[in-house]
Design a protein around this nucleic acid. Structure first.
Lengths: 192, 192, 192, 192
DNA sequence: CATGAATGAGTTTTCATTCAT
DNA sequence: TATGAATGAAAACTCATTCAT
């Protein structure tokens, strides 16, 4: 097992346990066990539990952004670009429900609050920049309502977040047709 | 201090501490301290920490629903009713940010997952019924797109949730004008 | 309800709860509840939990001794007197299994150890004197083996204690015929 | 210190403290302290306090049975076999008074009641079988009275239990001569 | 006298982290 | 580098006792 493999096993184990049982329902010993490593080994790869939680979040965020960029072309019309990203978000989280549960839990905990505050103070992160260009261009082209970027983001992605949760909980089933329909309806909230 | 006062002091203390520090950052001893009661006293009013957390959620949910119903008239046109409720949600949480932080944290934790599953199995709760009538009537009147209720809910309230969080984090400032604008834009996502 | 009634209700409740659940499995609040009095009321009749436990033991011991003396005649032959007392012990505890469970638990706990040590230092208690006369007279008459009183006591009452427990646990069923048989067999252990 | 050593240190500490102070007079922290281990360490070896108490009882019982079997020969006459076992019980507990105090306390608490009931439902334990053969053979040979095994057991071992307690409390002193005398007298209660 | 809500010291138990191997 | 037994500080929770009503 390569070094890197161990690190990944730890993250995979943490993801599964925390997504299902929350930050407390997941003791380090249990994570180590599930990862097939010794309890002390986690501390060779992560400073502590908080660091593990935070680094895992960053990792998942990176994977999401990478997926969203697949097949994305800055040359496409604004609407196409949004539809691509919106549908990709839905598909990504439907395929990786644990990622969703983990990320939501993280963002709605004091960890996430701290993260958001940090980003507000520092520069925008990669993800924000990514979405921002769509909305700014859309407004420049008079295709979108004149609203702050945060509002555009909320109007378009807010519905997706709620629906992904509903899907994961089994309240609704999102197939490809519905994904298109929803993404388009999201767009309707911001278009002129 | 009346019986009821102590129970309320405990809930107030728990709300503040958990909203700010999360479920773990808030030990029972700290809650008792902040509430001005003995550690054992909490257990006279709540079976344990989990029960306190859950009952507090129910209480906050009840308060929110009560507020949404103020000035709500089933006789108003569909759109007015939605605008009333949507704006009320925003105003409520802007006035009570701790309620929002607590409820979001709860809903995105294993507690909330369990709650949603329970509600799915049992009958809908009061809140669901409340929103449902607006969307069902809107579809009957051909004012709204033909979509499952869960999708209507997501398209309209999803944006609000995201924006409330942004407001509380100071990323954006929601004044009355913006509240109207946003609520109307939310409606645009579902109207035909 | 007279004062005295309350005291008795408390003792009755304590007896039942402690016999069944042990000294810890029986919190003061539970005893008060079962007795139908307020938790504070117990402290008007007993100094504290230890005092309640000890006074209850003394009370039960007194009742047992009173029962053993019923129909007992110092004029009877030694063997009759023993058979009377032995059979009475069995009948008493079979009729009052909670008394047995409580007294055994007490005697085998640090409470009982302390009690025995106290009695050793001070004068013998009423009960000891009671049995002592039978064995001393029996030895004087050359009917019994020449043994220390404690040994006589052990040889005759030891079997009874074990059998009462077995009966209460349902391992064996003691009817009148068996009671006689056992009492007589106990006597055989000490007679010449 | 080997693994096993720690487990044994914990049991030794628990034995001493519980024998002397009872199940409550012996907090886990005190046991850990006396054992020279951290408080959490106990939980690596035992599921909780109840498990520690129960496993310690089983361990002591095992040691007792092992001692009784030393030098025991199924080929010896019934009476010799009983005298061997009876005297061994006395010698064992006189040498290990803490074992006696602990086991008696256990058997007379709700723990012991539960244990006896369990054994009644399941098959007899090793110890029962051990004694049973002596009494059954004795009856078959017409050496012993025709009585249920439980009664034989009570008549022979009941006295020993009481005397061991008296010895430990200092009420009587059991030397080898007395041990023989008592064991023989016990046998007299059951022989024809 | 009686009450029972309130208390907080004391208990069991958990778990992130360390460190000898 | 990896381990996992050991730790002990900190957590949840209990309960004998008090005291204002």
């Amino acid at each position: 097992m390569k070094n890197t493999d161990k690190r990944e096993e730890i993250m995979r184990a943490a993801l599964e346990l925390i997504a299902e049982h929350g930050f407390h329902g997941a003791p380090m010993a249990m994570i180590a066990d599930k990862a097939g490593v010794g309890a002390g080994t986690i501390y060779r790869y992560f400073e502590g539990k908080d660091a593990l939680i935070t680094e895992l979040y960053r990792e998942l965020e990176g994977k999401l952004l990478a997926y969203l960029q697949e097949g994305y072309s800055a040359a496409d019309p604004t609407r196409e670009r949004f539809l691509h990203v919106g549908a990709a978000v839905l598909r990504y989280f439907i395929a990786s429900p644990l990622h969703f549960l983990y990320m939501e839990q993280y963002m709605n905990s004091p960890f996430g609050i701290a993260l958001k505050r940090d980003r507000l103070l520092g520069q925008s992160d990669e993800g924000d920049l990514f979405f921002k260009s769509i909305f700014e261009e859309g407004m420049a082209q008079k295709v979108l309502k004149e609203l702050p970027i945060f509002v555009h983001f909320a109007l378009t992605f807010g519905p997706l977040i709620v629906l992904i949760r509903d899907h994961i909980l089994g309240l609704i089933s999102l197939d490809d047709a519905r994904i298109m329909q929803i993404t388009e309806a999201s767009w309707d909230g911001v278009k002129r």
